[in-house]
């Protein structure tokens, strides 16, 4: 694994985190491969027990778009906090078919509108990343959350 590829993948992961932190929801679908993608947030409890139900599951690019369409249209009622995603421990491996596999840790902190801080989410990403038109996109992104007793709401993707 070249240092350059490691850097490119890290940049992808950080750009993705920043897009959600900054609430640029309309930019989010472009991180996924349009032809075929799979995005899900699953609880560690279900993941470890091989139970298939996710907390959030988008199996087509249309479903990815819908997740943020509801946020962009401001059609859901939820507590709008300011979130920061901390992505670390990034490991990238090249797979036989030329795609990349990346694993990383995730910590999300949040503050409410009066500035009160709380830990929102702890988990990890397991990604499959492909080269596409000179850039990198996720063909699969699975977020496995250890903090699966969700702090009231999961409106904004992780």
């Amino acid at each position: 694994m070249s240092a350059e590829l490691q850097q490119r993948v890290e940049r992808l992961l950080f750009d993705y985190a920043d897009t959600l932190d900054q609430k640029r929801f309309s930019d989010w679908p472009a991180f996924f491969t349009p032809e075929a993608c799979d995005y899900r947030i699953v609880s560690r409890e279900n993941f470890d027990a091989d139970l298939p139900a996710p907390l959030m599951g988008c199996y087509t690019h249309g479903m990815v778009k819908d997740r943020v369409a509801m946020l962009i249209a401001d059609s859901l009622t939820y507590q709008k906090t300011n979130q920061r995603r901390y992505v670390s421990n990034v490991r990238v491996d090249r797979r036989d078919d030329g795609t990349m596999e990346a694993r990383s840790n995730l910590l999300v902190m949040q503050c409410d509108f009066e500035g009160n801080l709380s830990t929102y989410m702890v988990g990890r990403y397991e990604d499959v990343i492909v080269e596409r038109e000179g850039g990198l996109t996720f063909s699969r992104r699975t977020v496995i959350v250890d903090s699966f007793n969700i702090d009231n709401v999961l409106a904004v993707p992780l």
């Binding site: 609880s43 409890e45 139970l51 969700i150 009231n152």
Partner: peptide, 11 residues
Amino acid sequence: KVIGYLRQKIP
């Protein structure tokens, strides 16, 4: 058949 658990802490 259980196909998953979901947990939510509601304040």
